[in-house]
């Protein structure tokens, strides 16, 4: 599983890096960034879903890998 942020939608509310700091961080203007390549480590699925369902702009995409 992978997380991505759609930069066209992200407005920097920061819910993702507040709630799931292992997966997300902020840039110098407060916009969300995925940590590393966005691959969710084992056990991190819940943190990923919490971030997705709390982003006010619906900017986070979960990519389920086959």
């Amino acid at each position: 599983m992978k997380v991505q942020i759609d930069p066209a939608r992200c407005q920097g509310h920061g819910r993702c890096y507040d709630l799931s700091p292992d997966l997300f961080t902020e840039d110098d203007e407060g916009y969300g960034q995925v940590v590393g390549d966005g691959v969710v480590p084992p056990g991190g699925e819940r943190a990923a879903r919490v971030a997705v369902s709390n982003c006010p702009e619906k900017a986070i995409v979960l990519v389920e890998e086959a």
Partner: peptide
């Protein structure tokens, strides 16, 4: 409440 996609700080470009 765990899922709380509220809009207290606005939505869109004026967040």
């Amino acid at each position: 409440r765990e899922i709380n996609r509220h809009a207290a700080f606005g939505l869109g470009i004026h967040r």
